Structure formats: C-alpha cells, structure tokens
Amino acid sequence: MTTAHSPLSFSTRIAHDADLHASFISGWQQDYAQLSCGRYFGRLDEVCTGRVQLFCEYASCETWQQCRPAPGRIWFGLPAPGSGASLRFAGQEVAPDSVLICPGGDEFFLRTPPAFTIGGMVVEQDLLEACCLVRYGHALPPLWRQSGSLTLTPVACRQLEQSLARYLDAARSQPEQLLSDKWQWQLADILLQALATGTHAPAKRRSHLGWVEQTCRWARVPDAPVASVDSLCQRLHVTRRTLQNGFHQAAAISPLGMLRALRLGEVRRALSSTQHAGQSIQDLALAWGFGSASQFGQDYRRQFGETPSQTRQAMRQDKQQANADALPAKIGITI
C-alpha cells in the first residue's frame, strides 16, 4: 500500500488492523502481518514538509513488516529504548541505542515486539549531502546512506530521540514553521551529528532472512497445500534444526508460527475486502488451507480477538460510514 505526500501535513491516525496500519506512512509501500494474538491497535503521528518526513509509530501486537521508503530519501529509524530481544531488522537482532537505516526505493524487513514504538526520520538525500559537506567537508559516508544499523552513543541516541519528539510537538502547534529551510537544515544537522558517533554493526548471514522471505511468499499463495516443517526443509534444502534456528535468528518465530499467522492474515484481508464480499467465510478459509471450520474459527478468534463474522460486519460498517461522511474508512483522527 502507498500513501501520497502532501506539501505540509500533520496527522494522527488510528488502526485496529495491521493491514490498514501499513497504509498510513505517506509515500511508503508497506505490508504488515500480525504475528501475536489479541486485538490490534496501531497509531501513527506524522508530519510531512516536502523534504523531511517525521513520524512516531506504535503497534500493540507483534508484527512482521515489509517496508519500502520513498525514492530519493533515506529513512532513519529509532526503536524505543527497551524494545526487547525479539526485535529484528533485516533478519538481525538490534543492539540498544541503534539507528536503523534504509535508502528510499530499497526494501527492508522489520520484526517488531509487542507494544512497540519507533520514531522515524525520512530526509531527502540531497539535503543530507549538502549538510554533510558544510559540517564535515566531505560527501555523505556510505554507512550513513546504505541499509544497515549504527549503534550510537547513549547520549547521542537520547538527544536524537528528544529532537524528534520536540519537532513532532512543534508540528502540532506551529506547523508553518516546519516549512522553513532553516528548520529542515537544523534537523538534518542534528541527525548527522548523531550518526557521527555511531559504530557499524557487522552483517551476519543473510540466508536465514532469505528462508523467511521465501516462506512468506509461499504462505501468501492461495489454494497452495498447507506446508509442514518437513516440506519447507525439502524445498529450502536444509535440516529441520537448521530451519528452526534460522527462523528464530531472523524472525524470532517458528516456521509454522509464521505460516499460520500469515494465512490467517490473508483470510482477514479477504474478509475486509469488497472483492470477496460474495464468498462465504468457509470458502475463504478453505482457499487459505484451513480445512476444519470449527478449528479455523477458534484459531481466528484467538489471533484477532474477534470472529470472522465480526470482521466482515466491521468492514461493512466502515464502508457505510465512509459513504456517509465522504472520508476514507478507518482513517482515524486527522489534525
């Protein structure tokens, strides 16, 4: 899903569905899958000024996120302190006081823990290059503009977090100030000073992440046979123990746990879509490999905190409300 930029906007959006939540960040292509059980709650506070985009995002449940920032920019992510051992970026554990980096147009994968908050700064690369030349006398170093993570000093990380919070607060009260070149230059300069304290986290084997990516692709093919750990091992040419360990390292979840969560999520997406409004719940469940209607109903309710019928009814109510108000469904509160 992609949402377009506006010249200047500040918004707060609320979602009770991971798939909807994925559509919130302006200019990004994203897909979120809910991994843990329970009712989902997501929130995004975001300001877009043209050259700079700032946001703070919260998700109540564990998720698997596939994200692609807008081209021509660089994303810098700041996980909240104490995010936990299950946080993964690009299939790797994230050290405390880290900033996550991805250039626009590239794809990254994020595995988030429960009750997860992350701040985001998305800055035009040309602005960062110009600011770096003035402050340091050289071009933007490769480690500051390529996918990976930097571990900052604790002081620099806290200062960067405070700056992000301060600018988001200012956007609520005096958004017109955020359009000034001076403000955007100051923000870029603060970011570069923090990056200068960073040390690069060495990359580990990417094959584990590749196994997760391939499994996710298979899980999202409707009418495909329900996979087992043994069948995944055969297709990926690895042993059961190697596959289990690889999934734990790259995604902090078991292979079957990932398959189950993704397929339940696909059923939920179909139930929320007008395209499948004429199909029965049982037919949709069968299409995604759930042969027992009673077991599917139990699994679905445990995963999402509601029945499939409640999901479909909520979709219809949202559509009716959108038609009545001439606003997108479930957009939440926009300031």
Rank of each mutant, 00 (worst) to 15 (best):
L133Q: 12
L143D: 14
P222C: 15
D223M: 15
A322T: 06
P79V: 03
T239S: 15
Q244T: 15
N323R: 14
G246Y: 03
V229C: 13
C37L: 13
S207Y: 11
D223C: 12
W185Y: 09
C157V: 01
D97R: 09
A219T: 05
R73K: 14
P113A: 05
G104I: 03
A322R: 03
A314Q: 10
S6P: 12
V267T: 01
A250R: 05
D318Q: 05
T274C: 13
P79A: 01
D223K: 12
R241V: 15
E213Y: 10
S292L: 09
Q65E: 15
A115Y: 06
D19P: 05
T153E: 03
L236G: 03
P222Q: 14
K182M: 06
E124Y: 02
S147H: 02
V134T: 13
S60I: 02
I281W: 06
A277S: 11
C56Y: 11
Q174A: 12
L192K: 01
Q321V: 01
A165K: 01
F304S: 02
R260M: 12
G91H: 00
F109Q: 13
A250H: 08
L8G: 05
Q234C: 10
A165E: 07
T197F: 04
S254R: 08
L286A: 05
P7K: 00
W183V: 15
V123Q: 02
Q317T: 09
Q244Y: 11
T215D: 00
L271H: 03
C131E: 03
Q177M: 12
R68F: 04
C102T: 07
A18V: 06
P79M: 07
Q193A: 13
K319W: 12
Q214Y: 11
S207T: 14
G91E: 07
Q53P: 03
A171P: 02
G291F: 12
P141W: 06
L78D: 02
L327R: 15
F247D: 10
A324W: 11
G305R: 08
R206A: 15
G82I: 04
N323E: 15
R302P: 05
G297C: 11
L256A: 03
D97K: 01
V94D: 08
F116I: 09
G210E: 08
Q186Y: 08
T242K: 07
G278E: 08
P308M: 04
A156V: 02
F296N: 09
G84N: 11
F108Q: 08
A326L: 14
R145N: 07
A115D: 15
G119A: 08
A224G: 01
A227S: 11
L243D: 00
I331G: 00
G257I: 05
Q92S: 00
